[in-house]
């Protein structure tokens, strides 16, 4: 089933999503890779404030290429006729989600994220956390960075850029109809990866027979 979803998303709606559904998202994403997961969890544990509200956005496993453009400085009004200062997204496809497996269950619990966007799928711990917190994991074509950038309308903010560098920093994107995103892990325990693993296991038996020929 294809759905246009506007973020923030209602809990009931996420609970209805099933493996195989295709989503197009409008609203805000925040990017977070290994370092950002680690940093945000650490800040949260120390009781420090996170400068944005992750629960209102989708979590994008992504380390984008962004370019600083225009004149002026951040949050300053640029001179008349000049291109205002800002970041432009050049390429922003998903990174391998498996690296975040060690953080994701705690991350979902700490920040109330409902939709994860990544590639390659995630493991058992995340699957259980999706069920516990009513969230889904969605897949976007890996490497399709130029295509993904087209659906990103604006870079609204960036956090921890100096500490983490461009790929690992947290970028806030405003997106319009970002997709197609395929739900591959849902909140009822459904997983495309688990189902596919069964098919692959059967095929591996045939492959081993063929190898002996």
């Amino acid at each position: 089933m294809e759905r246009e979803i506007t973020l923030p998303v209602a809990q009931d709606l996420v609970r209805e999503l099933r493996v195989g559904d295709v989503l197009y998202l409008t609203g805000r994403f925040f990017t977070a890779r290994d370092e950002a997961h680690h940093l945000m969890l650490e800040r949260k544990a120390k009781g420090e404030e996170i400068p944005f509200d992750p629960s209102q956005m989708a979590l994008f496993h992504c380390g984008p290429v962004v370019k600083e453009e225009g004149t002026g400085r951040p949050r300053e009004i640029s001179p008349p006729g000049a291109i205002p200062w800002g970041w432009r997204v050049i390429a922003a496809g998903p990174t391998t989600s498996a690296r975040m497996e060690m953080f994701e269950d705690r991350f979902l619990s700490a920040f109330g994220v409902k939709i994860i966007i990544g590639k390659g799928g995630m493991g058992e711990r995340t699957q259980r956390a999706l069920e516990a917190h009513g969230a889904v994991y969605t897949h976007y074509t890996g490497g399709a960075g130029a295509l993904a950038a087209k659906a990103i309308e604006q870079v609204e903010d960036v956090f921890w850029l100096d500490e983490l560098g461009m790929p690992e920093a947290v970028w806030i994107f405003r997106v319009k109809s970002f997709g197609p995103l395929l739900v591959t892990m849902d909140s009822t325990g459904g997983s495309l990866y688990t189902e596919l693993a069964k098919t692959i296991a059967k095929n591996m038996v045939k492959i081993r027979e063929r190898m002996k020929d």
């Binding site: 992504c62 380390g63 290429v65 050049i90 390429a91 490497g143 399709a144 130029a146």
Partner: peptide, 9 residues
């Protein structure tokens, strides 16, 4: 568009 194919260059 002379853009990087993938964000991981």
């Amino acid at each position: 568009g002379a853009l990087p194919i993938c964000q991981d260059t």
